[in-house]
């Protein structure tokens, strides 16, 4: 009788362990995956900038500072090493692009250009994608942290040497997705 009880308890323990081990691994991979998603969108955004520059340079010769700011923000984004650095550079780029699009209002020929319109749409959607992938990243981190802090997840997390992950901080200004006016 006793041996049966011990066997049942052992099997139960094994099942729970496997469940939690897999759960923690899965949730942690999800965080890495959602970071990769942010990265993809940031890269895509950086890749679009040269095209934009090409499209506007004929029209906006006299807006040197605006164009320079965009280029500067882009190279900051390209050379960023940590997640927080990339996010900061991306915020800078958002600001620079906002003033570029604001200035573009003064150039009717540019605004009428099909190419410029397409680039503007493309940049808007990547901007939204960056915002949403950051939200997804933070959701994933929250779920992971909740799992490894609550009982019994905390025991397994300790055994696996898993630590809490950090969320990406949102700046007050970029909580709201910036809208590009058309």
């Amino acid at each position: 009788m006793e041996t049966i009880l011990i066997a049942v308890a052992a099997v139960l323990f094994l099942v729970i362990s496997v469940y939690y081990y897999n759960k923690i691994v899965r949730l942690e991979n999800r965080i890495d995956n959602s970071w990769a998603q942010i990265d993809v969108q940031l890269k895509r955004r950086a890749d679009l900038i040269p095209n934009l520059m090409e499209a506007v340079k004929g029209y906006m010769k006299h807006e040197k500072t605006v164009l320079e700011n965009v280029t500067k923000a882009r190279s900051a984004l390209m050379s960023a090493k940590t997640p927080q650095e990339s996010i900061d550079a991306d915020n800078m780029l958002t600001g620079a692009l906002k003033s570029l699009f604001a200035v573009s209002e003064n150039y009717p020929d540019l605004k009428a250009s099909q190419n410029f319109l397409q680039l503007q749409d493309e940049l808007t959607t990547t901007e939204n994608k960056v915002a949403y992938s950051r939200q997804h990243f933070n959701d994933s981190v929250l779920l992971f942290n909740n799992t490894i802090e609550a009982i019994p997840g905390n025991l397994f997390a300790k055994l696996m040497g898993k630590k809490e992950r950090e969320m990406l901080k949102a700046e007050e200004a970029d909580r709201k997705v910036p809208k590009v006016s058309f």
């Binding site: 999800r30 959602s34 998603q37 959607t125 994608k129 949403y132 992938s133 997804h136 994933s140």
Partner: peptide, 8 residues
């Protein structure tokens, strides 16, 4: 596509 990214 944006919303799909938000929800994974």
């Amino acid at each position: 596509e944006e919303l799909c990214i938000a929800s994974g």
